[in-house]
Design a protein around this nucleic acid. Structure first.
Lengths: 154, 154
DNA sequence: TCTTTAATGAAAACGATTATCATTAACAAA
DNA sequence: TTTGTTAATGATAATCGTTTTCATTAAAGA
C-alpha cells in the first residue's frame, strides 16, 4: 500500500453531500468508500460488486442512481470508452485536467496529465477557430488514445 | 441538389465488396445507396428506415450486420458520441482524416478537417511520448468537441 | 441449370440502464 | 428521544440498442 492513510473515510465528500442537501445513507457511504479506495475507472457493475462487500443488500439501481448524482455534483467523472458501458472515477482533491489512454483489449483506462499545457494551448486555439467557422458554442472536449496496455502486450 | 451526379450508384463500393468475396445483395445495395446519399452520421435505426423506402422488407438485423461488415472493411466509419448509439458515415473517395464536433442537444455530428496538420503534428509527438512513458502501443485516437450547434443556439 | 453456402429476416436473447412503486430510514423539528 | 416528512432505497419490470439463433432464401461459381 502506498498511501499513508489507507482507511481514511472520505469525510470531505460526505460533508459536500450534506451541505448540498443530500442525505448521507449507508449505500452512498459505501459507494464513496469504494470509489475513494479505487484508482481505476469502474463500471457501475464493478462498483456494485465492491459495494456489496461493505454494505450487502445494496441494490444495483441505487448504485446507478448514486453514481449519476455524484456525477451531476461534480464529485465523480463519468466517461465513455466506446464499449457502451460508462465508467466512473472519483475526482480527487488537486485533481488535474487529464485525458485518457484506453486499452482496447482489457478496457483499462490510464489517466495522463503530462504535456497538458501544450495540449490545452492547442485546444484553446482550436476551439476558438472552430466556434467561429462552424458557428457553434463549444462546451468541452474529449480526447482518448486507443492502445494496447503494458500487461496486454505480453 | 448540389452534386452533379445525384443518382449515381456507388459502383466503386460494390466492386470493392465483390472483389473481397462478399455477395452483392439488394439489402447491401440499398444500405450503400442510403449511405452514399447521406452527409450526416446516421444511427442503425436511421439507416434502417431509409433503407425500407428503397428495399421494403429488409430487416434491422441485416442493417446492423451490414454496417458492421462495412465498418470492418474500412468502407464505413463507426463512431460513438456518448449516447450509447453508434453512428455510421461512409468513407468517401478523398476522405481526409478528421475529427468531430458533437451537438449535445440534437446529437448532430459535424466533421472538420481544418487545422489537422497542426493537430496531427501534436498528436504524433504526444503519442510517441505516451507510448514511452506508459509503455503502451497506441493504435489510434479519438478527438471530439462537445458543443451547441448553430440551429440549437437559436 | 444446379449446387453450395453466404446472407437474410423473424424472433428471442442479451446487457446496460432507467422507470415504477411500495417500503424504509435520514434528519429536522418538537 | 420521539416523531413527521419525504428523500432514498431496492425489487421488479420496462426500455433501448445490439447480437444471437436458426430455418429459409438467393447470390454466383460450376
Amino acid at each position: 500500500m502506498n498511501t499513508n492513510r489507507p482507511n481514511r473515510k472520505p469525510r470531505r465528500l460526505r460533508r459536500m453531500m450534506r451541505n448540498r442537501g443530500y442525505r448521507m445513507t449507508s449505500a452512498r457511504e459505501a459507494i464513496l468508500d469504494v470509489l475513494s479506495k479505487e484508482t481505476k475507472h469502474l463500471s457501475a457493475k464493478e462498483v456494485y460488486s465492491k459495494v456489496l462487500l461493505i454494505e450487502p443488500g445494496t441494490g444495483l439501481t441505487t448504485v446507478y442512481r448514486t453514481l449519476e448524482t455524484l456525477s451531476e455534483m461534480g464529485i465523480v467523472n463519468k466517461i465513455e470508452i466506446g464499449d457502451k458501458t460508462s465508467r466512473y472515477e472519483l475526482i480527487r482533491e488537486g485533481h488535474r485536467h487529464h485525458h485518457h489512454i484506453i486499452c482496447t483489449n482489457c478496457s483499462k483506462v490510464i489517466d495522463y496529465d503530462d504535456f497538458m499545457e501544450e495540449e490545452q494551448e492547442m485546444f484553446c486555439k482550436l476551439e476558438k477557430e472552430l466556434e467561429k467557422k462552424y458557428n457553434v458554442d463549444i462546451k468541452g472536449h474529449n480526447v482518448q488514445f486507443f492502445a494496447i496496455c503494458k500487461e496486454c502486450r505480453k
